[in-house]
Amino acid sequence: MTTFLQHLLNGIATGSIYALLALGYTMVYGVLKLINFAHSDVFMIGAFSGYYAAHALGLASNPSLPGALAVMVCSMAVCGTLGFLNERIAYRPLRGAPRITSLITAIGVSLLLEYGGQMVFGPDPKFFPQVFPKSNVQLGGVNTTNYQLIVVAVALALMAGLQWIVYRTRFGKAMRAVSHNFEMASLMGIPTDRVISTTFVLGSTLAAAAGCLYGLVYPKIDPLMGVFPGLKAFVAAVLGGIGNVPGAMLGGMVIGLIEEYAVAVDPWAWQTLAVHVGRFKDAIVFGILVAILIFRPSGLLGRYEPEKV
C-alpha cells in the first residue's frame, strides 16, 4: 500500500509537469488548430533560463525559496518573449497558408531551438541547481521530498490561475470565442491576432514553469531534453481532448501515472511475462495515443467535430 502511494505521488508530480506542458499544446491548438511543435523546446529553454537565472542570482551556493520564485519568474519572462517572437515571426505570416506549411515551419522552429540551443548552451548536459534547500518529508507513511510537493503545489496553483484566466476574464472569453469559431470571432470585433499572441505567451510561460519544475526533479538538462516530455504532453493533450483546458490537466496526470506504474510493475512483468515493461514506457504512451486517436478521437473530455462537407 505504501509503495502504491509512493508511486501515486511520483506519478502525480511528473503528471503535473506534463499537464502544464499539455496546456500549451491544447491552448494553441484551440485558437490556431495547429500543433505547436516548438512547444517542447520552449520547455527546454525554460529549464535553461532557470539554470542561468539561478546561477546569476547566486542561488546555487545560497539556495532560498524567494530566490527560487524569482528564478521561475525570470524563466517565464524569457519564454513568454520567446513565444511571442515565435508566433510573430514564424506563424503569423502563414495565417492563411495551407496547414502543412505551418506544420513544416513549426518543425523548423523546433529544430532551430534544439540545435541552436546546442550551440548556445553546449551539447553536454548541465545540472539544474538546488534553488532552495531540499528536505525529506514523511507524508502518511510515504517518503517524499519537499521538492516533489512543491512541484505539485506550484503546478496546481498555475493551473488554477489559468482556469481563472480562461473562464473568468475578458481575455479568456475572447480566447474561447476564437477557439470556437475564428472567423466569427473576428467579425464580432475580437482582435484575433492579439488573442493568438497572448495565447502563445501564456502557453510559453506555463512551459517555462514546467521546465523549471522538471529541472528540480530531474536536474540533468540538455538541449534535447524537451523532445520526450513534449511528445508525452502532446499525448496528454490528445488524451484529454485537444483544445480542452481541463482535459489537458487530466490527461497529463493520467500519462504521468501510467508511466510511473509501468516502471513500478517492471520487475513483476519481467518475472511473469519476460517483458521489461518499464523499458517500453515510451512505446506504451504512444500506443495510448494511437488507440485514442482511433477509438475516441475527441479524447476523454473533448467534443469530436467531423469535417463539414
Binding site: 514564424a90 513544416i104 518543425i107 523548423g108 522552429v109 529544430l111 532551430l112 541552436g116 550551440m119 553546449g122
Partner: peptide
C-alpha cells in the same frame, strides 16, 4: 562554431523556415 558544434541542423532548420515563409 562555439563548442565545435555541428551547425548543419541549425542551418537546415533555418533553411526550412525561410523556405516556408518565402517559397513554400
Amino acid at each position: 562554431t562555439p563548442y565545435g558544434i555541428d551547425p548543419r541542423m541549425v542551418l537546415f532548420s533555418l533553411l526550412l523556415i525561410v523556405l516556408m515563409l518565402t517559397r513554400p
